[in-house]
């Protein structure tokens, strides 16, 4: 066992782990943050995407021990509990960007990362290319693409209104 300290959804976590513990296992099994999912064993599907130090990362392909001192954000931490949804979450709901919901947390975390890197005006082509590490079997992506475009714009509007306050 080895010790690791990191911050998950704003809360400090210090724990002893078997060195082979993956971040996704730490999240799901020890912290009971089960919104992050495992859909494959070859780092392809993206159901496990979380943010590490602000960037999208596949939590199935990172050891917990690699994250000493890191800031981790999962789908559960994207919006305050009982607070308003994050604009990207809201956009997925509004645009029917999910069906079974299994890939959805990874999709939303990836989408927020796309906006960070590519801005708020996203065209169809850009979004589709940026989703190459996230697989959905239900939606045919059509409404996911719509949701991300809408969510990206809403994030800008949200940021603008916050700035005005």
């Amino acid at each position: 066992m080895a010790a690791v300290s990191l911050t998950v959804n704003g809360k400090p976590v210090t724990t002893d782990v078997d060195p082979r513990t993956l971040l996704v296992q730490l999240l799901r099994e020890e912290l009971r943050l089960t919104g992050t999912h495992v859909g494959c064993d070859t780092s392809q599907c993206g159901a496990c995407v979380v943010h590490v130090n602000g960037k999208a990362v596949k939590s199935c392909t990172v050891l917990a021990l690699q994250l000493e001192g890191a800031q981790v954000l999962t789908i559960e931490g994207l919006a305050p509990t009982d607070g308003p949804l994050h604009p990207m979450q809201e956009a997925f709901r509004e645009n029917h960007g999910l069906q079974c919901g299994y890939c959805t947390p990874g999709m939303i975390m990836t989408a927020v990362d796309i906006v960070r890197r590519k801005g708020h005006e996203l065209d169809d082509r850009t979004i589709r290319e940026e989703l190459e590490g996230n697989i959905c079997r239900c939606t045919g992506y059509h409404n996911i693409v719509k949701a991300i475009a809408a969510g990206a714009r809403a994030m800008q509007a949200g940021a603008a209104s916050q700035a005005a306050e």
């Binding site: 943050l33 089960t34 999912h37 999962t74 789908i75 994207l78 949804l85 029917h96 919901g101 959805t104």
Partner: peptide
Amino acid sequence: VRRKEDHRFITGKGHYTDD
């Protein structure tokens, strides 16, 4: 109608078997 089930899925609060 927007889906009633979506809230739990978009907030990571679904209950799949492996959860």
